[in-house]
């Protein structure tokens, strides 16, 4: 009964000296076939040749249960007639829902709205982020403290930011409206029109994520060697020339990464929109993510929402591959 344990102890001792020899010992002595005790079993499980697999197994199992299985399951459902709220069993539908989604004018309208928000928000984030990075590249009093403050928005939860901006825009009590009324005599009803509501979302999103762009660009800016600027100064290069030929090439790669990353993230924008406008007025600011949520969890059109989600996933995968391509290219540059 004690024999395998003794062998394991010696095997462990061997392991520290000669791995190959110890493996042989383990193979010969610790096998579940013996089945003598739980201890034997655990030792068999975590024998050196299995240890790696065993250590990653929990993560793989979690990944499979939480990500891969639901993904495959919902992919399967997109080919069936199925509603989560109904007790009727799924019926095969083929590509019916893919066809339905791709020919649905509402989907294209929501994609158009999403594109408008993405274009405006990402542009604003790039401009503000770049400007802030240029500012923080220089040394000035309280730079560190100010930098920490500027980074705060992206550390807040989406819900908190959404609620904050909703109150900010509220026309009766909101500070923005109060300030506007002070100068113009009338309250500001920003969320009453399509473009007002779109800008309201864009401002909230840009406020939250411009610091992220700034961080990336700042990393590029500080990596520019000083001697290049010194050489440019000797050549009496103008500010614009210095920026174009020295600074920008160093930050271009990171800027592109920021652009892609923010485009992917903004494409999926949900929380801020849902809280600030709930897609309104009417459906003017209903992004594709809000629409998917509505179809899936309010209308319980499970198959249709699955099909739509896979089409969106495809778009995100394309963008992600672009992102990875540029990441790899930058790594090669470095």
């Amino acid at each position: 009964m004690n024999k395998p344990v003794t062998n394991v102890a010696s095997a462990s001792a061997d392991l520290s000296r000669t791995p190959a020899a110890s493996n042989n010992v383990t193979d010969n002595t610790i096998t579940p076939a013996g089945g003598k005790s739980m201890r034997d079993f655990w030792q068999w499980m975590f024998s050196p040749e299995r240890r790696g697999a065993m250590l990653v197994a929990p993560a793989l199992i979690m990944l499979f249960l939480m990500n891969i299985f639901p993904l495959m399951w919902s992919f399967g459902l997109s080919f069936f007639h199925y509603k989560a709220s109904s007790i009727r069993p799924p019926r095969f539908a083929g590509f019916y829902y893919y066809e339905k989604v791709l020919t649905d004018p509402v989907v294209w309208e929501r994609l158009q709205t999403t594109a408008q928000i993405v274009a405006l928000s990402v542009l604003l984030q790039m401009v503000i982020g770049f400007a802030m990075a240029l500012m923080f590249e220089k040394k000035f009093p309280f730079r560190r403290e100010l930098l920490m403050l500027v980074l705060t928005p992206m550390m807040l939860s989406f819900v908190a930011v959404g609620v904050f901006f909703k109150l900010f825009y509220e026309p009766t009590f909101g500070i923005l409206s109060q300030g506007y009324a002070y100068f113009f005599g009338e309250p500001l009803t920003l969320l009453a029109t399509k473009w007002g509501a779109i800008w309201a979302i864009v401002i909230a999103d840009a406020w939250m994520w411009s610091p992220f762009v700034m961080l990336l660009v700042l990393a590029g800016l500080v990596s520019v060697p000083d001697y290049l600027y010194e050489a440019a100064a000797v050549d009496r290069a103008s500010w614009w020339r210095r920026f174009k030929t020295v600074t920008f090439p160093y930050v271009r790669g990171l800027l592109l990464l920021a652009l892609l990353f923010r485009t992917i993230e903004t494409f999926k924008i949900f929380d801020v929109v849902y809280i600030i406008t709930a897609g309104g007025p009417g459906t003017s600011t209903e992004t594709i993510a809000v629409y998917v949520y509505k179809v899936a969890f309010q209308f319980f059109k499970t198959s249709q929402s699955s099909a739509l989600s896979y089409i969106l996933l495809f778009v995100v995968i394309v963008l992600t591959n672009l992102y990875l391509y540029f990441v790899n290219r930058r790594n090669e540059e470095i």
């Binding site: 509220e170 026309p171 009766t172 009590f173 409206s177 309250p187 009803t189 920003l190 969320l191 009453a192 709930a278 309104g280 007025p281 009417g282």
Partner: peptide
Amino acid sequence: SPPVAKTGQMDIFVIQELIMQ
């Protein structure tokens, strides 16, 4: 009604707050 009516966000909690405030 107060200007929030124009935004389509004058729900039951908003009107409750309007009279309470």
